[in-house]
């Protein structure tokens, strides 16, 4: 098989050659058999709660109190008379826009460095993954305060340069920034996925292009990036979803403050669902968030046909 970069531009599939590609669906029964665990799981365990929440969103339902159908009133209230909705949506969008690209770039760069077979690479890889290992544990909020508090290590560091520090986490101007930094710092999982993706790129591609005289930068753009694009696509979508749903650090480290500077959407949702038990209103908030995430994902997947390349049965690569 010839997988050199010249096939990148190769057009859509040639007439189907393979014997099992006769019908539109190559294996309807086998397909359903393979996905049956998920399908059963979805139908039995997830579908009901999911549709229940959609139903709730059209009701006035506070836990332990009778439920009342109110049509779209929850949604109307959210969009017309809920300043907290606007505030938390604003913070969340800011967070998504800042943290997603930064995290992806950091993760990709580090993954490329770590994918080389250098001496001691195992140690570096573990060290760099470490922040993600401690992810949700109790230590992390203590730690972050220890770094960015008034007496934190960060202030001591900048004091060397004669800059007077402040309490970064509890300052309304910088609080969200420290949380974004925390997210970027915990790029380990994203990096690991890139790393696994890089390992799937056959070495001979690089060798062939080296022979052709391509330099590293050309190789990056003509081999690494296209070959990695399905993984990049995956990481991008997951980073966006996770950023929209960001909750933990805002909750634990800043509790939405100061002055609501880190009051993210998921915190507001949580507040409605678990502090006020307004499951109806909270469900409406959840579905709005869902629609926002779906919209963002659709946007990404719409653009993906221009930059994501999948392996196909034609032996080379084609545009999806």
């Amino acid at each position: 098989m010839n997988r050199s970069t010249t096939t990148l531009a190769q057009a859509a599939p040639s007439p189907k050659k393979s014997s099992y590609f006769k019908s539109r669906w190559n294996a309807p029964l086998a397909g359903y058999l393979f996905i049956s665990p998920w399908l059963i799981g979805f139908l039995v365990l997830t579908a009901y709660p999911l549709f229940l929440s959609l139903y709730y969103s059209f009701t006035d339902y506070t836990l332990m109190q009778p439920m009342q159908w109110i049509g779209s009133r929850n949604y109307e209230r959210i969009f017309t008379a809920d300043p907290k909705f606007i505030q938390s949506a604003k913070v969340t969008v800011m967070y998504v826009l800042a943290s997603v690209p930064l995290k992806l770039i950091a993760a990709l760069l580090v993954a490329m460095v770590l994918s080389k077979a250098v001496k001691g690479i195992g140690f570096y890889r573990t060290a760099i993954y470490f922040p993600s290992l401690i992810g949700g544990s109790i230590g992390v909020s203590l730690l972050w305060r220890n770094i960015f508090g008034v007496d934190g290590i960060f202030n001591k560091l900048i004091a060397v340069f004669g800059i007077e520090g402040k309490s970064w986490i509890t300052n309304p101007d910088t609080a969200l920034g420290t949380l974004i930094l925390l997210t970027v710092w915990q790029f380990g999982s994203t990096m690991v996925i890139f790393l696994a993706g890089l390992k799937q790129i056959p070495n001979d591609l690089y060798e062939a292009s080296s022979v052709d005289g391509a330099n590293k930068i050309v190789q990056f753009f003509r081999i690494t990036l296209p070959m990695l694009s399905p993984i990049l696509y995956f990481n991008l979508i997951m980073a966006v979803i996770n950023a929209f749903q960001m909750f933990t650090s805002a909750f634990v480290i800043t509790n939405g403050g100061p002055m609501n500077a880190t009051y993210v959407y998921a915190m507001y949702l949580y507040e409605r669902a678990f502090s006020r038990y307004e499951l109806g209103y909270a469900s409406a908030l959840a579905w709005i968030m869902l629609v926002a995430i779906v919209a963002a994902t659709l946007l990404i997947s719409y653009t993906s046909k221009y930059w994501v390349f999948y392996e196909t049965d034609t032996g080379g690569k084609k545009r999806k």
Partner: peptide, 17 residues
């Protein structure tokens, strides 16, 4: 990549707060 369920793990603090 914080998974949602994992995020919830720290709901913890609400109770405190």
């Amino acid at each position: 990549m914080l998974k949602w369920k994992r995020s919830l793990s720290v709901l913890a603090m609400t109770a405190i707060v």
